[in-house]
Simulated assay, not measured.
Amino acid sequence: MKLDVPVIGGPCWTELGTGDLDAAKRFYSELFGWRPRTDPHREAGGYSVAHLGDAAVAALAPLYQEAQPVAWNVSFAVSDADAAVRAVRAAGGTVVLEPMDVLDLGRFAVVFDPGGAAFQLWQARSFPGAGLFNAPGTLGWVELLTRAPERAGSFCTTVFGWSVRAGEHCTQWGLDGADFGGMVTMDDKFPPEVPAHWLPYFAVEDIDDMARTAVEAGGTLLMEPRTVPDGPSIAVLRDPQGAAFGVYPAGLEG
Rank of each mutant, 00 (worst) to 15 (best):
P99W: 08
R226K: 09
W141E: 01
Y248E: 01
D20I: 05
G182Y: 07
Y248S: 00
G140T: 05
G106A: 06
E205R: 14
E143C: 05
T14E: 04
A235T: 11
R26N: 07
C170N: 04
P6V: 04
L16R: 07
L222M: 15
L16D: 05
H51A: 09
V74Y: 01
W173N: 02
V70R: 15
D230K: 11
L103S: 14
E193S: 13
A148L: 09
D176R: 13
D179K: 01
L175P: 03
L21I: 14
F27Q: 04
D230W: 03
G19K: 12
V78N: 06
S154C: 03
G231C: 06
L145G: 13
E168Q: 14
Q68R: 09
V111I: 15
A61Y: 01
A244I: 02
I8D: 10
G106N: 05
I234C: 04
F133D: 05
R151S: 12
A243P: 02
P195W: 08
G251M: 09
G53L: 08
P11D: 07
A203L: 07
T213F: 00
A87Y: 01
V5S: 13
G181W: 02
T14C: 14
F112H: 15
G115S: 15
L3W: 02
K25M: 12
D22T: 13
V85D: 03
P69N: 09
P232R: 12
A203W: 05
E205Y: 00
P136R: 12
V236P: 00
A58D: 03
D101P: 01
V74G: 01
A71T: 14
P232C: 06
G19F: 02
Q123E: 15
E216I: 00
G17Q: 10
H169Y: 13
R238L: 00
D20V: 04
T157K: 13
H169A: 11
K25Q: 15
A250C: 09
F245I: 03
P149K: 03
V159D: 06
F119D: 01
H169S: 12
A59V: 05
F108Y: 15
A196Y: 01
G116N: 03
S163T: 14
L237M: 11
D80Q: 07
A55I: 02
D206E: 11
G131Q: 09
Q123V: 04
V5H: 13
E168S: 11
G129Q: 09
D4M: 07
K189Y: 05
G106Y: 04
A109T: 07
R42S: 12
